[in-house]
Design a binder for these strands. Structure first.
Length: 426
RNA sequence: GGAGGGUUGGCUGAGCGGUUGAAAGCACCGGUCUUGAAAACCGGCAUGGGUUCACGCCCAUCCAGGGUUCGAAUCCCUGACCCUCCGCCA
């Protein structure tokens, strides 16, 4: 959520900034509702004041043993007026609140202009693209030839956009998770966390998936209003909901491995082949809550932490800055890491690292106590994938493939693979 | 699934329907004392909103939402969550 004061005081400037990401803010409606709210709030508070003081007067008269009947008569009509004012004020505030909850974050001034992913800006590249003296295959072909990746059976068990791995390939998938968690906890200072995979609506509102993006989520039928988590960002960031962090416990750095579930409604024709876009995938996610003045610097660190995973796996990638039109709802700025996939001859997103500023913190009331002022102040939150596990597996298969259809296991993963150096048909 | 108990400020924890935003303690901040520190003593210390140049004043908030009442932390209803015991269960 944006700062309501800012929204009130300079709606035109905000509208202009939101326009960069293609969001149209109805300034006229906002200022009209806001003016009405203000007037009504003052009126309601006056009536409340009258009610409070007359109730006190009744109390005092009663203790003195005076007759309270005349006083009671005087307030009888006040009550009705107050009720009407309160009801209308509540409606108005609900309306304003739901508008505010639907407004995305303001893009940071550094964010490049643009309307779609085509306008994203390449920041840097790392690694050499592999050269093959044969026609490289994609992970679907490779996986099928190995007999360790099976989409038909997954479709039988569940449906489309699920996958079944077996043998060394399944182990490699697990190895990647271990490797990433060990790296981020051991070398980057994150605290490993295990979190619920089902989340409630409050948590989803807190990070910004609700109210606007319900269609992207799997919702459970039953007694509780629970959703399958679409990313560890949701449960992990909400650890801090309604909390005040002591200054000496800042920053908070969490890393979690979770499955992620996405309905992918609206992406029907997209990436139908292979493991790239699944309803269920694993991700290792880094989440930080930091001092407001540090978040831009921390974003660079976060990107670096994700990059190190790719570097250690020797996978070529590039870093792009998302343009304003491609930013997620809650993000002020986002860098994507895109890994090279020889099977597609393309860079594909494998990590997304964002600074949310105080946007999520305001929604979840995540604050820290500033030792200088002694006052609670909103933190800034950030998160980044470190990395998407399924896509990393795909990238390794495709980049490390050999002419005979096998592929080499990257050096860094050997200790997790129980002696398997080359994945070959079992 | 059955039966009870609970939810109050950063934390612990009082609270009779009436001037209680809320006792007390802890923590924290400032001061006195001290070579310094501790202890002791004194003072301060919730959040959000409205209004004001400012001092301040006003409103809301004691899990959430309804209700009763001139007046609700306190009474009633519904819900969420937590705890204890029994049953079931990885």
């Amino acid at each position: 959520m944006l700062d309501p004061k800012l929204l009130r005081n300079q709606p035109e400037q905000i509208a202009a900034q939101l326009g960069r990401r293609g969001f149209e803010l109805d300034v006229e409606q906002l200022t009209r509702l806001e003016a009405e709210r203000k007037q009504l709030q003052v009126q309601t508070q006056q009536l409340q004041n009258e009610r409070n003081s007359s109730a006190k007067a009744v109390g005092q008269a009663k203790t003195k043993g005076e007759d309270i009947q005349p006083l009671l008569q005087a307030v009888s009509e006040l009550k009705l007026r107050l009720e009407a004012a309160e009801t209308r004020l509540n409606e108005l505030q609900d309306e304003l609140n739901s508008i505010a909850m639907g407004i995305p974050n303001i893009p940071h001034e550094d964010v490049p202009d643009g309307t779609s992913e085509d306008d994203n800006m390449e920041i840097r590249c790392w690694g050499e693209l592999p050269e093959f003296d044969f026609e490289p295959r994609d992970h679907v072909e490779l996986g099928a030839a190995l007999g360790q990746m099976d989409f038909e059976t997954a479709a039988k068990i569940t449906g489309s956009r699920f996958s079944l791995l077996s043998g060394p390939l399944a182990r490699l998938h697990r190895a990647l998770i271990q490797f990433m968690l060990d790296l981020h906890t051991g070398e980057h200072g994150y605290t490993e966390t295990y979190v619920p995979y089902l989340v409630n609506a409050d948590s989803l509102r807190g990070t910004g998936q609700l109210p606007k993006f319900e269609q992207d989520l799997f919702r459970l039928v039953g007694e509780h209003e629970y959703y399958l988590t679409p990313t560890a960002e949701v449960p992990v960031t909400n650890i801090l909901r309604d909390t005040i962090i002591d200054a000496d416990e800042m920053p908070r750095k969490y890393v979690a491995h979770t499955p992620c579930f996405r309905s992918e409604a609206g992406s029907y024709g997209k990436d139908t082949r292979g493991m790239i876009r699944q309803h269920q995938f694993e991700k290792v996610e880094m989440v930080q809550a930091v001092h407001p003045h540090e978040s831009w610097q921390v974003l660079d660190q976060l990107v670096n932490h994700a990059e190190i995973v790719l570097q250690k796996l020797e996978l070529p990638y590039r870093v792009v800055a998302l343009c304003a039109g491609d930013l997620g709802f809650s993000a002020a700025k986002t860098y994507d890491l895109e890994v090279w996939l020889p099977g597609q001859q393309k860079y594909r997103e494998i990590s997304s690292c964002s600074n949310f500023g105080d946007f999520q913190a305001r929604r979840i009331k995540a604050r820290w106590r500033d030792p200088d002022t002694g006052k609670p102040e909103l933190v800034h939150t950030l998160n980044g994938s470190g990395l998407a596990v399924g896509r990393t597996l795909v990238a390794i298969m495709e980049n490390c493939q050999q002419k005979n259809g096998t592929f080499r296991v990257p050096e860094e993963l050997l200790k997790y693979m129980g002696g398997v150096e080359v994945v070959e048909p079992g």
